[in-house]
Nucleic acid binder design. Structure first.
Lengths: 335, 335
DNA sequence: TTTTTAAAGCGAAACGTTTCGCTCTTTTTC
DNA sequence: GAAAAAGAGCGAAACGTTTCGCTTTAAAAA
C-alpha cells in the first residue's frame, strides 16, 4: 500500500541507512537530498510511526490523565495542551477518571500499556500513589494545577493561596470588612484558596468568621445554595468571594433572584476568567489564571523530560495570577 | 527490560508461534496453557502493542475529531465516548479543531499519520470534505451529533428538527401562541431546531414571525442579548424556546435581571439537560438528548466497522429525545 | 605532497510481534 | 483397521523502521 522507505531506496539507489539519516535530520549530500525529496514527493511517502516506535521505543504520544473532562476549566486547559502537543508532533491520549481514584489508577496502567512517552496529570487528589506505576515504568509525569502531596513530581500551577489572598486584599482595600466566601473544600485548590482568604483577613487584623463561610461541593448548585445562605444572614456580608467558576455562576444566579444589586448592595469577586465573565452584569472582578501558559509550560517541561531521559530533581513552575477589574466591587466610604 | 514473548519461550520451551496463538485466544493444550500462564505471571509479561501493531496494522486507538473541546456538551460526550472505548481496550486520541475548518483538515491528516483505527468526528460543518482523506486511507469514520451533507458517512445523532417541534408543540398545547425563539444559525443543529420550531407553529396554523426570532452565535453572550431583545418587544412572547445550553444559560441570566418571573410572566423551554438545569429556579422544561447512548452507539458502530473491514452502505442511527418537565411553563387560560 | 581528520554512505542486525506453510499426532469416519 | 480430517505445534519470514560498526571519499593540516 503506502510507500515505505524501501521504495525510496529503489527510487534513489541509496541505502536504507542514508535515507533514514535524512529523515531524522542527519547530513546528506545535496544531490542525494534532492533525490530523496523528489522520491518522497512522488511516492507520497510518510514515515510509519509504528515501525519507528518499535525500534526507538517512542510513540510520540502523551497521555493526559484528567480527574474530569466535563469541567469547563479542564476543557480549556485541554485545548491548550492539545494544541501545544500537536505543534510538536505529539498526539494526546486522554483518560477521564470521572473523579474516581480507582478509575484513575486503571487509567495510569492503560496509558503505560499504550506506551505513551509521558503523562500530564490533573489528578483526583494530591495523593498521587497511582502515578508511582508510571515512575516505575520510567515514564515522565508532569502535574498541572494540582501538586502532589510529597512534591515528588514536576508540577505547573499557580499559587492558589496567594491568588486568593490577593483577591481578598483587594476587597479590603476597597473598605470591605464583612467579606463572605463561597468555596469548595472537596479539593486541593479549594482548600488553598480558603487559606488565602484567611491570610488576607488576618493580615488586616480580622479573623475569618465561620458564619461568613459557605463551604460545599465544587458545583453550580452549591454556588447557588451558598449565596442563598450568605444573603439570609441577619448581617449580610458587603462582599463575597467565590473561589471558582462553577461556584461563581451559581452564586450570581442566586443573587439575581433577589432584589439586591451588585455592586450597590453587595460586591462580588470571582475566580477563573471563563466565558461567563462576559455575560454577567456588572462585569465581575476576578482572579484570572494564565490557562494558556499553564498548558504550554506543562507540555514544554514534559517534552524536555522526555528528551533528556535521565530523571532530575522534581521542579515546580508556579505562574502568576492577577485580579482583573470589572464593575462588581464597590468602594465603601470608610472602614 | 520488560519481558518479551521470547522470554516466555525460554521459560516454557514452546515456540513463539504457539505462545502468540495463546495470546490471541487460540487453542492450546491445557498443560501448555498452564505453563504459559505461569510464565506470564512470573515475568509480568505484557504484550507490546507497538510490535503487534506493526504486523497487524492496528493500533487499538481511535481518533476523536471535535470542533471544540471547550463546550460543555462535548465534554460530556467525550466522557462517554472515552469510557466506552477504554472498556474495549481502545485508546482515544483527541484533536480539537477550535471551530476552524483548516485546523480540522490538519487534524484529520494528523490522525491518519498516527494510524488510528477509526475516527469519531464532531465536524465543524456538514461539509465533510476534510474526512475524504480518511476515507481514502480506508479509516472508518462515524459522525456524531452532526451528519454530513451528502450522508456518505455513518452517523449517530438525534432528530433535532423533530425534537424542537416536540418542544414547541408542548408550549402550544399549554395555550401559548406568541412563542419566541433564541437560536444559533451558525451551525447545523441550530438550523434544524429552528426549522422544527416553524414546523410546530405551522402545524398549529401559525407562522413563525421574524420579530420573535433572535438568531445569533452559539454562546452565552448571545443568549443574554437575545433574551433582552425579546423582552423589549412591545408585545413580548408568552414563552421562549432556547435551542441550546449556552443560549439558555445566557437567556436565563438576562431574565433574572428583570422584574419578570418565570413562569408567571413568561414561560421557558430549554435544550440539553446539563448541570445548569438543577440550579435554575424554577426547574426548566427542556429537551433532553441521550448523551450516553449517543457516545456508546457511536463507539459500538465504529468498532463494528473496524472489525469487519469491508465498507458497507453508510448508516444513520437516530436516537429519540424527550421533553423533561420542570416548572417553567405556565398553562395559559385560553388560546 | 603526505598524513590526519571529518563527512557521508553502506550492509546487516535489531525491535517484538503475527502469520504462513508445514509436520506430526490424535481423533473420527466408514 | 485404513484413510481422512482435525488439532497442536513449529520454524522462518515478515512488518518498516533505526542504529551499529565499518568503508570510502573528501577536506584540512602538516
Amino acid at each position: 500500500m503506502a510507500a515505505t522507505i524501501r521504495d525510496i531506496k529503489e527510487r534513489t539507489g541509496l541505502s536504507l541507512a542514508t535515507i533514514s539519516k535524512y529523515l531524522n535530520g542527519g547530513n546528506v549530500l545535496p544531490e542525494n537530498r534532492i533525490k530523496i525529496e523528489a522520491a518522497i514527493k512522488e511516492l507520497h511517502y510518510e514515515v510509519n510511526e509504528i515501525a519507528r516506535g518499535l525500534v526507538t521505543n517512542r510513540t510520540r504520544t502523551v497521555g493526559v490523565l484528567a480527574y474530569s473532562v466535563e469541567s469547563i476549566f479542564n476543557g480549556t486547559l485541554l485545548r491548550h495542551i492539545g494544541n501545544s502537543l500537536r505543534k510538536a508532533g505529539y498526539g494526546l491520549m486522554i483518560c477521564d477518571s470521572c473523579d474516581d481514584p480507582k478509575i484513575e489508577a486503571e487509567n495510569v496502567n492503560f496509558l503505560i500499556g499504550k506506551k505513551v512517552d509521558g503523562i500530564i496529570a490533573l489528578p483526583v487528589s494530591t495523593k498521587t500513589d497511582c502515578l508511582k506505576a508510571a515512575r516505575k515504568a520510567k515514564i515522565p509525569v508532569v502535574l498541572i494545577d494540582r501538586p502532589s502531596e510529597d512534591a515528588s513530581f514536576d508540577c505547573v500551577r499557580i499559587d492558589n493561596r496567594r491568588a486568593a489572598a490577593q483577591a481578598v486584599r483587594f476587597l479590603l482595600q476597597n473598605g470591605h470588612r464583612r467579606i463572605g466566601i463561597i468555596c469548595s473544600h472537596s479539593e486541593y485548590t479549594g482548600e488553598e484558596r480558603y487559606k488565602g482568604y484567611g491570610d488576607a483577613l488576618r493580615e488586616a487584623g480580622a479573623e475569618p468568621q465561620e458564619g461568613l463561610c459557605a463551604a460545599g461541593t465544587h458545583s453550580i448548585e452549591f454556588g447557588f445554595e451558598g449565596m442563598g445562605r450568605l444573603l439570609s444572614l441577619k448581617e449580610r456580608p458587603t462582599a463575597v468571594f467565590m473561589t471558582n467558576y462553577e461556584l461563581a455562576l451559581g452564586a450570581v444566579m442566586a443573587l439575581n433572584r433577589t432584589k439586591l444589586h451588585c455592586p450597590e448592595d453587595i460586591s462580588l469577586m470571582g475566580f477563573d476568567d471563563l466565558i461567563m465573565s462576559h455575560v454577567i452584569h456588572p462585569r465581575l472582578h476576578m482572579v484570572v489564571q494564565p490557562m494558556k501558559e499553564m498548558g504550554e509550560k506543562a507540555v514544554e517541561l514534559l517534552l524536555e523530560r522526555i528528551g533528556s531521559g535521565q530523571r532530575e530533581m522534581a521542579m515546580e513552575i508556579v505562574l502568576g495570577t492577577r485580579v482583573s477589574e470589572g464593575d462588581s466591587v464597590a468602594k465603601l466610604g470608610e472602614k
